[in-house]
């Protein structure tokens, strides 16, 4: 028996909006520690890892570990039927072939339930090694989204370079080229507006902008984003989800042949 009650149901709606274009089908894993998902995109270039910790739910009952295969397009259709202020409860029986999403309006005067069929999905769980990153950049998520969107109008790939001077985003295409440099700044008023760079050594990596733009659909989940980079390793783009967890995107760099 599984029963997870999330008071801030809009978080789940936002999570689905953030990942449904990257991944079509995925297994949601439920255990004592939380509700999680790990899935790769169809080209095996990017991976998304979601964690919603059990203590972030108002009520969290998971009698035994459960893996539920869901089509994210269909799940998103159902969650779109929940109001932004609704409380969402996810219910499933052990060994059952469906999951139920229950939506309650804040004043409790409307209750809906939507049952969705589960599916069998063969997925390999990728063990991502713990690594020390050469550079970690924390910046406003809206700024990162803006840069990715702007540069994708010029080119297909972006070179992200971190040095002691700041983080530089560069692209070039048929019509020309562009560079955006964000320097470290400290905002006294609002930590969310800060750009903070922790660097052990300079790093420069090339990525397909198409994927980074897809990741920025998670911008609504967090005011800040963290980019963790090491030489010749996938970048980790992380959005914290309030007090409850995180969504991390891993993207393989492009390497000179």
């Amino acid at each position: 028996m599984l029963e997870l009650r999330l008071v801030q149901g809009s978080l789940l709606k936002k999570v689905l909006d953030a990942i449904k274009d990257l991944v079509t089908d995925a297994n949601f894993d439920c255990s004592e520690s939380g509700f999680s998902l790990q899935a790769m995109d169809s080209s095996h270039v990017a991976l998304v890892a979601l964690l919603l910790r059990s203590d972030g739910f108002e009520h969290y009952r998971c009698d035994r570990n459960l893996s539920m295969g869901m089509n994210l397009t269909n799940m998103s259709k159902m969650l779109k039927c929940a109001g932004n202020d609704d409380i969402i409860t996810i219910k499933a029986d052990d060994g059952g072939d469906s999951v139920t999403f229950m939506f309650e309006s804040p004043s409790q005067d409307k209750v809906s339930d939507f049952e969705m069929k589960l599916m069998d999905i063969d997925s390999e769980h990728l063990g991502i090694p713990e690594t020390e990153y050469h550079a970690i950049v924390k910046m406003p998520s809206a700024e990162f989204a803006r840069i990715c969107r702007d540069l994708s109008t010029i080119g297909d790939t972006v070179v992200i370079s971190v040095s002691k001077d700041g983080v530089k985003f560069s692209t070039s295409g048929d019509i020309g080229s562009a560079n955006v440099v964000c320097r470290q700044n400290n905002s006294v008023d609002n930590k969310d507006n800060e750009t903070v760079i922790e660097m052990n050594e300079p790093v420069s990596l090339t990525f397909a902008l198409r994927y980074l733009n897809s990741f920025t659909k998670a911008t609504t989940l967090s005011n800040t984003v963290t980019l963790s980079m090491s030489k010749e390793l996938p970048v980790v783009v992380e959005y914290k989800i309030a007090e409850i967890g995180h969504i991390r995107f891993y993207l393989a760099p492009k390497i000179e042949d």
Binding site: M40, L126, L233, A252, I255, E256
Partner: peptide, 14 residues
């Protein structure tokens, strides 16, 4: 032109 590699190949190298 830089080539796009598979994500798992990077982690396999570690």
């Amino acid at each position: 032109t830089p080539v796009q590699n598979d994500l798992m190949e990077f982690y396999a190298m570690l």
